[in-house]
Amino acid sequence: MKIAFTAAGTTWESMIDPRFGRTEFFIVYNDETQEVSVVDNSAVKNEAHGAGTATAQKIFEIKPDVLITGNGPGENAATALKQLNMKIFVNAHNMTIKEAYENYKNGKLQSL
């Protein structure tokens, strides 16, 4: 299973980026192969508007089974994400990626 985190950095110790549309990175963890990869989303900084839909297009290319983030996607992004068969967990801000993963494993994150 592929789990994607919105992340403010590129390591397991980085903080969750609470934003979906303007997240700087995605950290993608495959819990079967235990592979970790990083997807750079920082180009979204240059978007004046429409960051949410631009990032939704990006996450579609990653095709994760689970998305873990902070505030949750905005209205437009949420509409786009409905097209993906993906579980979304929110309220993981103020956690590191590692902590967010543990909380997710223990069923402590709120699902959308």
């Binding site: 934003r19 549309g21 303007r22 900084k45 240059n46 978007e47 004046a48 508007h49 960051a51």
Partner: peptide, 8 residues
């Protein structure tokens, strides 16, 4: 103003 400027 834009979301981009505020984000910056």
């Amino acid at each position: 103003n834009s979301g981009k400027l505020v984000a910056k």
